[in-house]
Nucleic acid binder design. Structure first.
Lengths: 334, 334
DNA sequence: CTGAAAGCGCTAACAG
DNA sequence: CTGTTAGCGCTTTCAG
């Protein structure tokens, strides 16, 4: 049979309450009784039932990480890095992490609220949420602590951590320009995500600033997915005027592009310069290694977790909006 | 105020029990009352409190994944792949995953039992456990369902899923032999893990079988860590007789080795052939791409999860011991 | 400094 | 088909 606080109490000839006080280190207990109780707890190997405790305390010390329900999610190094950051920080604060896969296509307004109502979580971090996700607004109307990662939405009731995506895209184009490239194409990311949109915007803006040519046929949509990018970038080679460089909104797309370029017996960076975005682990290993805009993914995770814990512990109040810096990492592809 | 089952009951003029029956679809409820109750539940947006439910049902539909408490854990593609498999399977069975980092250096016997006693989990999967982990035996004495991954321990009370590591190492050496290499060195993995030991054993056995020379100076210990391997493999170049090939017990070590070889202006595979183990994502992207023994990491995760769910649902009983096949993936490094 | 009573939100068991 | 009672294991409250 399971050992409960009542067993300890009985054996120590005290009430459950006194045992509870000892366990939680709250309230006065005579040193001698405390000692006795501790000893019995040790002897019996008692561990408090977290479920029972949570039922009354209303806190579980568990945070949820909402992830899109797709197979092989952690193979995406982008996700893995962010999750690493969250985990690192949770460790320090003694919070547990529970992974909650949510269907991308679920358009219901209460998809997150349902989870909240289950009372299992003290807070949540949402990864890869899309712009028109109908679940976010209702969630923000509750008092429940949550943070969006890599999703920029200015609102008094929404907290987010994002990178400076527009700036990043600008840096990329500037860099290509400085390297002498003038016909700069783009493999855009998902326009359902703010970071995808922002990177495209930064690209277009910088072309304007530099007085470079913009052509519709120089923009293709890779959806932040390698397989899609691999297929779509084909179109760039069919352009009336061939680009001499490509800004890719993510590294996986850039890697797909490089594969395609090689298949066509063209050279990187001599014939076509390539810049990626994110700086995933692969970036420095592919051949040629990838020049990319590094966004601090681990820090993004750490930051989101820190903010969430502050929100939970009410040491800070919404809205918290944070933008992290990006930097260009020059490698061989430009 | 939070809506509870009592609110629904009141509004529907029935007892809590009837509501409970409707929610869980158990027991008889008049279709009309059921309908009415469902409607009220919808209207009020009621969601059951999982904590309260678990307190009585003794089941949480949450499994724990025990991971070593190291920073940036998910950056290890090996871990990421296994976790991907576990997640995929948990999704199907509607189980949640909670990540539980445990201190490597914790030598206490009750480290896992403590977690079990917290009653938060229905079962657990342990990753990267070491051979002399004092926590495993006591855990196996409980009735609590758990599965070890990539850890081979034959015991009536222990369940595990592992790859055929010995066979894998043999395959690697055979392959090097067939390519004409005769002086085959080894960067061994951690001997604190069964897979590290097995791979070393397979290597030694196959050298014997083939009548190849064995030399102590041809074996270094990389601990399954890139930085350690990078440092330790230095010794191979200081050997009296230089090896012409190296079997590495993991891909990260192989990548470290290749870097070192390049620094020394030697060529892979002409001067030195290299075979890795695992087939992490990077393996096909490094230059030269890495010949390696592929162990089915995702399947390892899937398998572990399946076994665990069977154990939890008592459709199977311990011990369950499963060994997955490995295969050689030939690339450029040999 | 300690204890008794009440209750968190739910379900199992039994009675009707 | 539905309700009552009891209780999961803990903490809060208040009294002593």
């Amino acid at each position: 049979m399971r050992i409960t606080i009542a067993d300890i109490a009985k054996k120590a000839n005290v009430s459950k309450m006194t045992v509870s006080r000892v366990i939680n280190g709250r309230g006065y207990v005579a040193p001698k009784t405390a000692e006795k109780i501790k000893k019995i707890i040790d002897e019996l190997g008692y561990q408090p039932n977290l479920i029972a405790r949570s039922l009354v305390s209303k806190s579980t010390k568990i945070i949820g990480v909402i992830i899109p329900k797709v197979e092989h999610l952690f193979l995406d190094n982008y996700i893995a890095q962010i999750l690493s950051g969250i985990t690192d920080e949770a460790l320090k604060k003694d919070y547990r992490i529970i992974l909650i896969p949510v269907e991308y296509s679920d358009k219901s307004e209460d998809k997150y609220i349902k989870i909240v109502k289950n009372r299992l979580l003290d807070g949540m971090i949402l990864l890869k949420t899309i712009i028109d996700d109908p679940g976010i607004a209702p969630l923000s109307e509750t008092q429940f602590p949550f943070v969006l990662v890599n999703h920029k939405r200015y609102s008094k009731k929404i907290n987010f951590v994002d990178s400076k995506n527009i700036r990043g895209a600008e840096l990329a184009v500037e860099h290509l320009y400085s390297k002498g490239y003038r016909k700069i194409a783009c493999i855009a990311g998902s326009l359902h995500e703010t970071n995808g949109k922002d990177r495209l915007r930064g690209y277009l803006k910088k072309l304007d600033d530099l007085g470079l040519e913009k052509r519709d046929e120089w923009i293709v949509f890779g959806e932040f997915r390698k397989s899609v990018a691999y297929h779509e970038c084909e179109k760039l080679f069919k352009a009336k005027i061939l680009p001499d460089a490509v800004f890719c909104a993510d590294d996986y797309s850039a890697i797909a592009l490089i594969e395609k370029i090689k298949e066509r017996k063209l050279r990187v960076p001599e014939d076509i310069g390539v810049v990626g975005f994110d700086d995933i682990e692969l970036a420095e290993y592919v051949k040629p290694s990838l020049t990319t805009i590094r966004q601090p993914l681990i820090e993004l995770g750490i930051s989101a977790a820190k903010i969430l814990f502050d929100l939970i512990e009410e040491t800070r109040k919404p809205p918290i909006h944070k933008l992290l810096n990006v930097e260009l990492i020059q490698r061989e592809s430009t």
